[in-house]
């Protein structure tokens, strides 16, 4: 009963928390861009929250640096279950151009489990919205609106 309620509220109004684990800012400004009038992610009920304790979805940008690794894990643990992680941008997906740098661990999935990958350098706002919508479809249990069969299972 409670689970159903939680699921329903998560699907109809997912709350996000955004964490920059070492990004160059390009993805971050595009994430904020999705919330501003042109793209307006809020029409899907999505709200950007200030604290991980209120959030359902953690939006990560950037490769994970040595200094942010522990903080990323801490923030992930602070989120109430069920929790989801979206990696935005090539760096968050794989480490991107920073792969191999001495202070970089790699993508976000090197540290915490990731539910959705949104590639791009930076990921365009349209792509971010698409990613979030597909994640919501996954939560609802539907098939993704346009199942990408041949690409790496993006969502």
């Amino acid at each position: 009963m409670l689970e159903k309620l939680v699921k329903r509220s998560q699907v109809s109004s997912p709350w996000l928390v955004h964490f920059n684990s070492g990004a160059c800012n390009a993805c971050d400004i595009e994430v904020v861009d999705t919330l501003t009038p042109r793209f307006d992610l809020e029409r899907f009920g999505v709200l950007l929250k200030a604290t991980p304790r209120h959030a359902d979805i953690l939006v990560c940008t950037g490769p994970v640096t040595r200094q942010t690794k522990d903080r990323l894990i801490r923030i992930y643990r602070q989120m109430p279950a069920p929790r989801f992680v979206v990696a935005v941008g090539s760096c968050a997906c794989t480490g991107g151009v920073f792969h191999g740098c001495y202070c970089v661990y790699g993508g976000v999935d090197a540290v915490i489990p990731v539910d959705a990958y949104i590639p791009g350098c930076p990921a365009r706002p349209d792509a971010i919205i698409d990613g979030v919508v597909k994640l919501l479809a996954k939560l609802r249990g539907d098939a993704p609106p346009c199942a990408a069969k041949n690409s790496r299972e993006a969502i």
């Binding site: 920059n20 640096t65 040595r66 920073f98 191999g100 001495y102 202070c103 970089v104």
Partner: peptide, 11 residues
């Protein structure tokens, strides 16, 4: 500082 220190100069 240093939270985003990725080591670009070395790279």
């Amino acid at each position: 500082l240093g939270y985003n220190h990725r080591g670009i100069e070395k790279a």
